[in-house]
Measured scan of single mutants.
Amino acid sequence: LEELEQFAKTFKQRRIKLGFTQGDVGLAMGKLYGNDFSQTTISRFEALNLSFKNMCKLKPLLEKWLNDAE
């Protein structure tokens, strides 16, 4: 859980630094990986307001997006 919290915090900082909005991330993930995510979902991930199971599902996809974006 602590690792997920740290990743969510780091993800948000890096996303902002790269100049992407939460909506941008959701759209890009849909185009790149075929998984559409709403701005709300990205927001809830960053705020740790998703279930643990959903957080765990999203984390590898967001890590991949972040690596591709950088």
Rank of each mutant, 00 (worst) to 15 (best):
L27F: 14
I42P: 00
Q39L: 10
F11D: 00
Q13N: 08
A47D: 15
K57H: 07
L50I: 05
G30H: 07
K9R: 14
Q39S: 14
Y33F: 10
N35M: 05
T21V: 02
T10A: 09
S38F: 04
A8E: 00
E2H: 04
F20C: 11
L50V: 06
K12G: 04
G34V: 04
Q22H: 05
L4W: 05
I42K: 01
E2N: 15
K57G: 06
S51M: 02
V25D: 02
L1C: 07
L48A: 08
F37N: 02
T41F: 06
K59W: 11
R15M: 00
C56F: 14
R14V: 12
N49K: 09
M29T: 04
I42G: 00
L61D: 07
D68R: 11
L66I: 11
E46K: 01
F7W: 15
L61W: 09
L1V: 10
M29C: 06
Y33A: 09
Q22I: 07
F37I: 12
D36S: 08
A8S: 06
E2K: 15
R44D: 08
C56S: 15
D68Y: 07
F20H: 09
L62I: 06
L58M: 14
L18D: 01
T21K: 07
T21G: 05
C56K: 04
T41M: 10
G34S: 06
R44V: 02
L1F: 13
L58N: 02
N35V: 08
E3Q: 07
F20L: 07
K12M: 07
Q39H: 14
K64N: 11
A69K: 13
L18Y: 09
K31E: 15
I16S: 11
L61F: 12
G34L: 04
D68H: 12
I42C: 02
R44Q: 15
C56E: 13
K9C: 06
M29K: 01
K53W: 08
I16W: 03
K57F: 10
Q13R: 08
L48F: 08
Q39C: 09
L50T: 07
I16M: 13
G34K: 09
E3F: 04
S51T: 10
N49C: 06
V25F: 02
S43I: 07
N49V: 08
G26M: 09
C56M: 15
S43T: 12
K59A: 10
T10G: 09
K57V: 11
L27I: 12
K57W: 09
I42A: 01
T40G: 10
L18N: 02
L50R: 01
R15Q: 01
M29P: 00
R14P: 00
L61C: 04
Q39R: 13
R14Q: 06
L62Q: 00
L50N: 02
S38M: 02
W65A: 02
S43C: 10
L1R: 15
L18H: 03
L61A: 10
L58T: 07
T10H: 14
L18P: 00
N54A: 14
L66F: 03
E46M: 00
E70V: 06
K53Y: 05
E3N: 07
L62Y: 07
K31H: 13
K31Q: 10
K12S: 09
W65K: 00
K31W: 03
W65N: 00
F52E: 10
L58H: 09
R14A: 09
L61P: 12
K12Q: 10
S43L: 07
K17S: 13
R14L: 06
I16T: 10
L48Q: 13
Q13T: 14
M29H: 01
K17F: 09
K53P: 13
M55W: 03
Q6C: 08
D68I: 08
L48N: 10
N35D: 15
C56W: 12
D36G: 06
E46S: 00
T40D: 04
E5F: 05
M29N: 01
F45I: 02
D36Y: 09
W65L: 03
F45Q: 00
E70R: 02
S43N: 13
R14N: 03
L50F: 14
F20R: 06
Q13C: 03
K64M: 09
R44E: 08
L66M: 14
K17H: 08
R14Y: 02
K59G: 04
Q22M: 05
L32D: 07
A28Q: 15
K17V: 08
K17T: 10
G23M: 11
L32G: 06
E63I: 03
D24K: 05
D68T: 09
K57Y: 15
T10I: 14
T40C: 14
G30T: 10
R15H: 01
E2R: 12
R15I: 00
Y33M: 05
M29V: 15
A8D: 00
K53I: 15
T10L: 12
W65T: 03
N35H: 15
K59D: 01
F11W: 06
T41G: 03
D36A: 08
K59E: 03
F52K: 11
R44F: 03
L50H: 09
L61Y: 15
E46N: 01
L66R: 01
K64S: 14
I42S: 00
A28T: 12
A28Y: 09
F11H: 00
K12W: 02
E5V: 11
M55C: 05
F45N: 00
L58R: 03
L48S: 12
L32F: 04
M29G: 02
F45K: 00
S51F: 01
A47R: 09
L66V: 13
A69T: 12
R15T: 00
Y33G: 06
Y33P: 06
E2D: 12
F37W: 13
A47C: 15
L58K: 03
F11C: 05
L62G: 01
A69D: 03
M29R: 00
N67S: 08
L48M: 12
G26R: 06
K57M: 07
F20D: 01
F37L: 13
F11V: 03
M29L: 11
P60L: 07
A8W: 01
F52W: 13
V25I: 06
F20W: 13
E2F: 12
S51Y: 02
L1M: 15
L18R: 05
T10M: 08
A28E: 02
L18I: 03
E2V: 07
A28H: 08
G30N: 05
E2T: 04
D68K: 11
K31D: 10
G34I: 04
K9N: 08
D24S: 06
A8F: 01
W65R: 01
E63P: 01
F11K: 00
L32M: 06
E63G: 11
K59F: 05
Q39Y: 11
L62V: 06
E63A: 15
M55N: 02
F52Q: 08
F7R: 02
T10S: 10
K31R: 14
Q39K: 14
L27N: 05
R44N: 04
G34C: 11
L27K: 08
K12C: 09
L66G: 02
L61K: 10
T21W: 01
E46R: 01
L61N: 11
L27S: 08
M29Y: 02
F45E: 00
Q39E: 14
